[in-house]
Design a protein around this nucleic acid. Structure first.
Length: 588
DNA sequence: AAGTCCGTAA
DNA sequence: CAGGGTACGGACTT
């Protein structure tokens, strides 16, 4: 124990990390692996060690001892003995239950007590100790899944309940290592790159694909977490390439469907007519099929079921890719429980769900296999270095009065629409004049006011696609330097990259949204490779708390928000400089 | 017969 | 919370 160490480890699974000490950065990178950031006010960041965070670390190969040693190495004081024991116990649970096809290691069929059962196609759930199995067999939820005792340490289960069993056991606190293997799926041979030009994979892209494959080459389910701009589709293709099979790719929207299709045509030698789009517009089922989550979850009639869900078993897919797996809707979870014999790859930039279904991602898609911190990608120069600033704006007396009269949920909006934000935006635009700038917000009223006052074009959902593309092109060419965008910025794949992002308002505490918006300025920049992110927040308001929550994911990734105050005098200063600035934007 | 636009639903 | 995307059927156009 060492008074200079940055962490205070508490009995309740909380770790306090003091920032700004020599060991702080290293501690943060350690905690990122087996803990979750829950609060980050000023000097102390609060992390939580949860069963799930421990199991994900275990799946990455961390033992209880590794984690304990890591905690020792950064802890300021003695670590509560009981906590160390609990960590030991939780981590060791990963691996005490395995699911397999009724084979023994020597390859022979496991028969158990003579004539006591027939294995048939049933899967074998093996526990490390008889006591554990006994305990599980008392659980009603598991009996309902057809769990039958085979011998002292194992039970059998019908293969169709493979997913539900894992989901239930994870909920009960006993994660299962699934070694029951996968169906091979229809074969499809192809190479990465076209003709002579091979697709050059980056170092970490190869590592990510390796991690999915597993050291034994038997892997085939799990999640790869990579920042925006890391080339998730390329990694997907690298995995596909190793498996050489037919693949179903699920994505969150049609633009992204088209993007997958385009990239596959561009970067592989798979014939164009072997790649299909399955969406509202087209219903092509080809050896490589790209579909939206939406179409799978769509119900035509009120009583009807999910008629498109059969796509999951329509062909013998050798792999299903879940792009942006953090957005996976509940019905697709349910359907995924039924197809556990198919390989599953989840891709995401933020493995956080605001609905708390991380556990289902873990049990039904698979554990986290690879996680590249955003800052690491930045260090390697693949994405721009971003300066994040939380710009705090005063609450005027008038605003405060309106806020006091309003209901709780209206108060947030009043703070978010603080009119001083206009002056702040003006001042930031002036400060970064010449750099491509996106102003992103959530309330159309606010955005329209800004558009009018600043003379900047506004893109919202109601603007037709063709008109959007026109503005995007003008922005890309540098004809216009600034764009105002609504929530379309959260999804539009074709939104051009910028060097400055100014967030004027956002949905409550969405960590995903914040990450997505930062992602808009990450493409590498010529010259210094720098970009600037500003979150405009009204001081002492409902907005302050939500802003802090939004930032958690990025802070976990190593970003730091410098807090600055925007004063009214500054606002007046920028007003003086307004005419020239305005004139420049007007020509847009 | 096929494409486009629009309102609705969840 | 407000806003946006998606799928789909029906009306209308080509």
């Amino acid at each position: 124990m060492n008074p200079d160490h940055p962490c205070i480890v508490q009995r309740d699974f909380t770790v306090l990390l003091e920032m700004g000490l020599p060991g702080s950065e290293w501690a943060r990178s350690q905690l990122q692996i087996y803990a979750e950031l829950v609060k980050s006010p000023s000097a102390f960041h609060t992390y939580h060690i949860t069963p799930l965070s421990l199991w994900n670390a275990a799946a990455l190969g961390w033992s209880a001892e590794d984690i304990q040693n890591s905690l020792y190495s950064m802890s300021r004081w003695d670590i509560p003995r009981d906590l160390l024991n609990d960590v030991e116990q939780l981590v060791s649970r990963y691996g005490t239950l395995t699911l397999s096809r009724g084979m023994k290691e020597d390859g022979g069929i496991k028969t158990g007590k003579a004539n006591s059962y027939t294995i048939g196609d049933r899967l074998i759930l093996a526990a490390e100790t008889p006591a554990l199995l006994n305990e599980l067999l008392t659980k009603q939820e598991l009996k309902q899944l057809g769990l039958l005792r085979v011998d002292e340490e194992s039970a059998s289960v019908p293969p169709e309940n493979r997913g539900l069993l894992k989901q239930e056991l994870t909920r009960l606190g006993y994660p299962v290592v699934d070694t029951a293997g996968y169906l091979e799926g229809n074969q499809l041979s192809f190479t990465l790159g076209k003709g002579q030009t091979k697709l050059q994979l980056r170092d970490y892209q190869v590592k990510a694909a390796d991690a999915f494959e597993g050291a034994d080459g038997l892997g085939g389910s799990g999640v790869l977490v990579l920042p925006c701009g890391a080339g998730k589709t390329v990694i997907g293709m690298a995995v596909m390439n190793r498996l050489q099979c037919e693949v179903l790719i699920l994505t969150s929207n049609t633009t992204s469907v088209r993007q997958w299709v385009e990239e596959l045509k561009q970067k592989t030698d798979i014939p164009a007519d072997s790649i299909g789009e399955y969406s509202g517009q087209k219903k092509e089922v080809r050896p490589i099929t790209v579909a939206t989550y939406q179409i799978l979850t769509h119900r035509r009639t009120k009583d009807g079921d999910f008629e498109h869900m059969k796509l999951l078993s329509e062909r013998k897919w050798g792999l299903i890719i879940y792009d942006e797996v953090h957005l996976l809707p509940a019905p697709v979870f349910r359907a995924t429980a039924d197809i556990q014999a198919t390989r599953r790859l989840g891709l995401t930039a933020t493995l956080v769900r605001e609905d708390g279904c991380e556990r289902d991602v873990f049990s039904l898609i698979g554990p986290k296999r690879y996680d590249m911190p955003w800052k690491e990608l930045e260090r390697q120069g693949w994405i721009a270095q971003v300066d994040c600033v939380e710009l705090r704006l005063p609450m005027t007396a008038e605003l405060l009065e309106r806020s006091m009269r309003a209901e709780g949920r209206q108060q947030y909006r009043i703070a978010a629409e603080n009119p001083i934000k206009l002056e702040a935006v003006r001042s930031l635009m002036q400060h970064h004049s010449g750099l491509p700038t996106l102003i992103i917000g959530q309330y159309l009223d606010q955005l329209r006011t800004l558009a009018q006052e600043l003379g900047v074009p506004l893109i919202t959902g109601s603007m037709s696609q063709t008109e959007r593309v026109r503005w995007f092109d003008a922005f890309r060419k540098g004809v216009i330097r600034t764009l105002l965008v609504s929530k379309v910025a959260n999804f539009a794949v074709d939104l051009p990259d910028a060097a400055v992002a100014i967030e004027v308002s956002g949905s409550f505490g969405s960590r995903q949204e914040e990450a997505q918006r930062l992602g808009r300025i990450l493409r590498p920049k010529s010259g210094e490779n720098k970009a600037y992110f500003y979150a405009l927040v009204t001081e002492n308001s409902k907005e302050t708390d939500f802003a802090a929550r939004r930032q958690l994911f990025l802070i976990e990734q190593g970003y730091e928000y410098a807090v600055r105050r925007f004063s009214v005098t500054e606002a007046i200063g920028s007003r003086d400089a307004k005419p020239g600035d305005r004139g420049k934007k007007k020509e847009a």
